[in-house]
Nucleic acid binder design. Structure first.
Lengths: 197, 197, 197, 197
DNA sequence: ACGTGCGGGACATCCCGTTCGT
DNA sequence: ACGAACGGGATGTCCCGCACGT
């Protein structure tokens, strides 16, 4: 039925494949990886990319959006169950595990964050939105925990959320360091929180 | 007689000026800023750079080293006096103030960190050394604080140092976000530590 | 029933709109202006142009023809009434006024003339025809003037027509210079003719 | 002595050769002719051009200047001797002969004039200067002629100069038409002037 | 110690033509 | 009659590195 690649559907598919290929390439080779290397990866030419995204920044923007989305989904999974406290700690562990997984994907994410803040102002809105969402989500977790009694009620939920947020960003950068370093840092932070909450 | 040492001295001076110019340029325009733009900034041509540093990466390495040194010195100043606790908190405040100063210099530092971890493996040793030093310094501060009674003795000094270290790196990334966000995060973290210690 | 002719009529209308849009665009942006920018200007895509004109040169040819026609009509109006002498001078004034109007349209006309003579041999026939017509028209005016006594009879009509023709082309180029220059040149030429005729 | 191609001299020579090659190429193939085709013509690469001229427009500007200079010199030769009247007519004949010579060089000159007036505003100053010089030179010739009695004194020198100037520009455009047309136009104009002066 | 000429390579941009669908 | 997907090619820009000279 829908199998007839009705030309426009083929286009959509191509576009998606290009985004995937870009994520893959840029993850591994860094943001410098060239335009038509990506195209070649899916058996197309530069013309196709240009057609679908208009410019390199166009592709970059879509890639950023997609990457952020994927990461968010993974985090949601990692903090889906248990008391508020458990979910919060789960999110921290999950983040750390993902960042430390050595997956090039998180190299890309870091690069994109940095680029958005510095050289590529057009990506800034995406970054901003993502930050806001993350902070809001963290605050919710804390509040939930305070509601169900798993987190001390005499702490400002917002302040805690912001601290965790900042530290998570620190972990994002620390993916560049040896795994042992990462692991120790995470354990230390978790311990601190555990006694604190 | 004096001409030989003079020659040498002139060379050294040129070299230093090139490093300065590179820091300045790369801070403002990003690491993409070209080779001979930097040379032109000090009234020279590429030839000079190539002569003194061998390659672009050569210059980059020296710049990295220099930038790290400058930052360290500033941090030492910010944590020079008072009890161990005061010095630790001073260092955190100092870091935050510097990162949040909007100085392009810290853009450069972030870029260099990221580059060292990803695209430019030759910079990795510099990064590693710097990390080690920072962690050691933090541990010292905590130990000092525990010695003089300004910090609770029942906390692992290493664990605390590593948490602080991670969060500080988080702040480094957060320089890219609006100042208000930075400020809130710092205050939240400081508050947490204050109750904790 | 009516749908077939309607279809055809819609096609014709689209074609005309494309020619208009091309004249507009190329007048303003120069002949470099791209293919589907023009299409977009009338809410269509390249496909439409390609369908109606076969190629870029196809469109160009039609545009040239159309532009020449429009210009001719304007000149006819400017030299419609009075004695032969008055009509001749009227034509000169009219040309000058049009060229000097600053209308981008005359930029386009000049570009097309030049292109026809040099890079685009396929446009040459159009140019040739237009030249012949213009020269013939000028000769007629002179002859008329000599018939009604408003122009000296001892001048070769053809020679006069050719001189005027050349000078008018000079004015066409001079549209690129400041209006004051143009105006002076026209007045000078008119004066000369006036004493001469 | 000076034969030692002291590196910098070689550079100057290369630069000159590039200008020559550009004139040649652009004359024949039109202004579209590519950057490194020209470089290849003198056995160099794009890098060399970029080094010497900074950009395509840079090269274009120098070419324009050079082309104008060459043309001026030829005109001066063609109007060097005789009474003022003879020199004026000589200049007209000379222009016509050059334009009509079929030399691609004059195609280039026309293209440059048009480009300067329309698409390439950075060339405008060159064009302006050249126009001024030409007008001034024409006026001088007329005045000289009126001084030595070879040209009627009751004509405005400036007006005459401007008319001639405009017509010469017309001839420049007419190079695109068949030689017979050109020749007739020139003869007609010369005849007119002869009776007039 | 430093300037200059130059090579060679990469990359984003842009555009025309075509084919396939509708 | 027209739109969307795509190919393929060309071009200007820019930059690093290396010989040379000096």
């Amino acid at each position: 039925m829908a199998s007839a690649p009705t030309r426009v559907a083929a286009g959509r598919e191509t576009k998606q494949k290009l985004v995937d290929a870009a994520i893959e390439r840029w993850s591994v080779d860094g943001l410098a990886a060239s335009f038509d290397v990506i195209a070649t990866d899916v058996g197309m030419t530069k013309g196709a990319i240009y057609h679908h995204f208009g410019s390199k920044n166009g592709l970059l923007a879509e890639v950023y959006e997609e990457a952020v989305k994927r990461h968010s989904e993974r985090l949601s999974e990692a903090s889906a169950e248990g008391s508020g406290r458990e979910r919060l700690l789960g999110l921290i562990d999950g983040s750390a595990r993902l960042y430390g997984s050595g997956t090039p994907f998180y190299h890309l994410l870091l690069h994109l964050h940095v680029a958005a803040g510095a050289s590529r102002p057009d990506l800034a809105p995406v970054a901003r939105r993502q930050q806001r969402r993350q902070r809001k989500y963290l605050t919710e977790l804390v509040t939930t925990g305070q509601g169900d009694g798993s987190i001390r009620a005499d702490i400002s939920a917002a302040a805690l959320a912001e601290t965790v947020d900042a530290t998570l960003q620190g972990f994002l950068v620390q993916q560049l360091e040896p795994p042992s370093t990462q692991r120790r840092a995470v354990r230390a932070f978790r311990g601190l929180l555990d006694t604190l909450l």
